[in-house]
């Protein structure tokens, strides 16, 4: 695609591996960068709000985005627990952007998935959630066609007015590998972002997630005999229908498929 005068910004966050808890690139953000590179190639701008720690492992998380072939990441410096929305909104208000790409939700912190919505509200842009691809961009009519990921692998085509914010779903194309050399060579362009502390979240209690209790099958039987029956009875076969003969079988299966609305 030749979209040289299109301005695309992708917002990246620090990811965290679900089991090892090691910092890594966030999977959805990496997909957003992949999509951005597909759209505009080297002209993709990348933005991160946070602090650049001296911790090498934290830096590797951010640098692994650089390893995807980006020349630099714009870093809006702010404390790690501050509110990123206002910082990013302040920055983006001064820019002329056509498309902003984010992940659906962060892998760290509250991960409410509100950031793209709040940005869209503050910048007055359209917001599309969980997209899998951007099909085409019509710069004359200021419209884009995007593919939205739906449950069960289905896709919906949407027309969106430019400029817009899109959150990229896991259904989007896999991100390219991060290469070590470019990751080390890439630059951070640091500007001071300001501090908007998030006071509300300071008194929240945050603990490691416990496994949620499995829902019990509650039997609301009035008599002891009913309860006994419910506790001991085997799950009956449900009366599976057995059909013999080619013609009858095919017809029975077809009827089921029609009933379920699959044909």
């Amino acid at each position: 695609m030749s979209n040289n005068n299109l301005s695309v910004i992708s917002l990246v966050s620090l990811g965290e591996h679900p089991t090892s808890r090691r910092p890594r690139r966030a999977e959805q953000d990496a997909r957003a960068i992949e999509l951005g590179i597909k759209l505009v190639g080297d002209n993709l701008q990348t933005l991160h709000a946070g602090e650049l720690s001296d911790d090498a492992s934290q830096q590797t998380a951010l640098r692994s985005y650089l390893g995807m072939g980006l020349a630099e990441i714009k870093l809006l410096e702010m404390p790690a627990d501050a509110d990123a929305v206002l910082v990013i909104a302040d920055y983006l208000k001064q820019q002329k952007t056509d498309i902003i790409l984010t992940g659906v939700r962060a892998e760290n912190g509250e991960s409410s998935g509100m950031l793209p919505y709040l940005l869209a509200e503050q910048l007055g842009m359209a917001m599309v959630t969980s997209i899998a691809d951007i099909l085409s961009i019509d710069e004359v009519n200021k419209q884009a066609e995007v593919l939205q990921a739906l449950p069960r692998g289905q896709r919906r085509k949407l027309k969106v007015d430019l400029p817009f914010i899109a959150s990229v779903d896991m259904a989007a194309a896999l991100p390219r590998q991060s290469a070590f050399g470019p990751a080390m060579r890439g630059q951070f362009e640091t500007t001071l972002g300001g501090t908007f502390t998030d006071e509300e979240s300071s008194d929240w209690q945050i603990v490691d997630a416990k496994k949620r209790p499995k829902r019990l099958k509650i039997i609301k039987a009035k008599t002891a005999a009913d309860r006994f029956k419910a506790a001991t009875a085997k799950a009956s076969g449900g009366g599976g229908k057995v059909v013999y003969g080619v013609e009858e079988s095919a017809q029975a299966i077809l009827d089921l498929l029609i009933e379920e609305g699959l044909i």
Binding site: P18, A106, G109, S111, I206, A209, K210
Partner: peptide
């Protein structure tokens, strides 16, 4: 459930 399913937040 916060942090993409890794933490529980009481608020």
């Amino acid at each position: 459930r916060g942090s993409a399913g890794k933490r529980d937040i009481t608020r």
